[in-house]
């Protein structure tokens, strides 16, 4: 039986426009998370998510449920990231005044803190930021596998389909990603509580 997102997309493909909004509501946060964890700031993540959903809607008539909708979606998302950002070498971590839109209170983008916090002052927030930095420091291939698995909760099989690589490669990249993250945290003197 198809999952809810796949069902919604099938309805959209059949011409039910009302199904598109709940579909966007369901997948938008995950798309944003995907692009954020790949290194985009909030503004760029929003733009990327918007473009991906635009592509999905444009191609709605040709959609068939060969796999879960999520697999289809993140295949497009991943290709979009490659096309627009990775290949064109656009710096995804640019911080600009325009990024003020990222936070509702309008305080502006957070500036990155020091990579090594003062000893003994590591709070929960700092710990999480250190972890985010560690994820961000992964190479592209490891990071996209890691993000798809951890943020999107996709199975290795699905990740392999999205990235076009064998499951064994997904697995080895995932293992390597974890080790690099841990090594980076240890290098900063951090151990998870």
């Amino acid at each position: 039986m198809a999952d809810r997102d796949t069902e919604l997309m099938l309805r959209v493909a059949a011409g039910d426009e009302a199904a598109f909004e709940p579909l966007v509501r369901s997948v938008l946060p995950r798309l944003l998370g995907f692009f954020r964890r790949l290194g985009a700031d909030a503004a760029i993540a929003e733009d990327c998510a918007q473009e991906v959903l635009l592509k999905v809607y444009r191609a709605r008539a040709g959609y068939t449920a060969r796999a879960r909708f999520t697999t289809y979606l993140f295949h497009i998302a991943r290709n979009h990231w490659i096309d627009v950002y990775r290949h064109r070498k656009v710096g995804p971590r640019t911080v600009s005044a325009d990024a003020f839109g990222d936070d509702e209170d309008g305080r502006g983008p957070e500036l990155e803190g020091p990579s090594v916090p003062p000893e003994g002052t590591m709070g929960r927030d700092e710990l999480l930021r250190a972890l985010e930095r560690a994820v961000a420091s992964l190479g592209e291939e490891h990071r996209e596998v890691f993000v798809l698995a951890r943020v999107e909760n996709l199975r290795y099989q699905e990740i392999g389909e999205i990235l076009g690589i064998p499951v064994g490669t997904v697995k080895s990249r995932m293992h390597a990603a974890w080790r690099q993250i841990r090594a980076r945290l240890e290098a900063e003197g951090i151990e998870p509580p």
Partner: peptide
């Protein structure tokens, strides 16, 4: 497991 639990906590923006 501890590392994975911490990673789960990391911020994920929601629309």
């Amino acid at each position: 497991k501890r590392l994975a639990a911490l990673e789960r906590e990391a911020h994920v923006p929601e629309a």
